[in-house]
Write a protein that binds this DNA or RNA. Structure first.
Lengths: 171, 171
DNA sequence: GGATGCATGTAAAATGTTACATGATTTA
DNA sequence: TAAATCATGTAACATTTTACATGCATCC
């Protein structure tokens, strides 16, 4: 048993979504993510797929007559159940997660105003670029979720800029 | 050389903030974080401190006459430089990070409307609780940053609820 | 014919989790 | 005096990164 890690769940989700597909394709999906959190490295994905097969959550499908080395996998009923349990886990879904800017802001008092301004400007530029980015899978709803996230992130940035300009200004 | 990981940087930041202090105290700070990302487990922190000392970023301070076993550490000039470099790294600061709800929403089509509503309700309850939470360190600015983040997260949630109610309603 | 992409994997190293183990001190 | 907190650490295990290695197929 044991709960799925986020990576395991995401991999199962991709196998579910993409039907019988390869570890390579799932790794590529991870690499295509706008989040730095999903490296999609071979060293992470292939052993992961192996473990999921051993645990009965994924199943290899026999390749008809393969001209090229290639193993397709599908999610099993057990795998779907495990993925579903991960999906509806409200406790974990309600966590704060990780944000690389938020982590830094805690120590913002070690920066000068100029450094702080420069940092926020770079983050805003990155956020603008991410907001414009087409995400994968190219489904309208996914794009809307991404847009909603980026909107929230930009409004956070605006609040922070406001907060810091007050902080630095003489009062 | 090598860039600092986020955990290394956060540890250095805490040693910097708390002055000569123990690994135990820094671990406790991590555990006090509202984010599930900072476990503050002994097995993570003590080996980390050891590595940071070996790399010359942290330095043990001789304890006067210690009644209890206890090693205090301070950040070195090199450590401060490394922490600073991490802080102003706009490229990393501009990343999307990890959000446990966002990760799940990608696979939202595997859920029924009722499950989806239940999940979002739980996440909203968690976000409300987090928004009210006093964070550590109890500095007004930290609290304001936390509040700004939670505001952004709640506005994201509202957008998502709106989006999904449109998605589920017959059109 | 060479670059790129598809496809799989491993090996070494680093990192982190979980659980255990110890013992002093402080508080109720 | 019992429980909680301070304080340090290790051992086994799981996971992930980085880098290497291979070979086929396709595109230019």
């Amino acid at each position: 048993m044991g709960r799925l890690t986020d990576l395991e769940a995401a991999a199962l989700g991709e196998f579910k979504r993409q039907g019988p597909t390869t570890g390579y394709a799932v790794a590529a999906s991870f690499r295509a993510s706008p989040s730095e959190f999903w490296s999609g490295s071979a060293g992470a994905v292939y052993p992961l797929v192996k473990r999921l097969v051993e645990r009965g959550l994924l199943e290899a499908v026999p390749s008809g007559e393969a001209q090229r080395e290639r193993t397709g996998y599908v999610i099993t009923a057990q795998g779907t159940a495990a993925l579903h349990a991960w999906l509806v886990d409200g406790e974990r879904a309600g966590g704060m997660g990780f944000d690389p800017l938020r982590s830094r802001l805690i120590y913002f008092d070690l920066l000068s105003r100029a450094e702080c301004d420069a940092l926020l400007a770079q983050v805003r530029a990155a956020a603008d670029a991410l907001a414009r980015r087409e995400i994968w899978p190219a489904k309208p709803l996914s794009q809307k979720i991404h847009a909603a996230w980026m909107r929230a992130r930009l409004s956070f940035l605006t609040d922070i800029e406001q907060l810091f300009s007050e902080e630095f200004s003489p009062d």
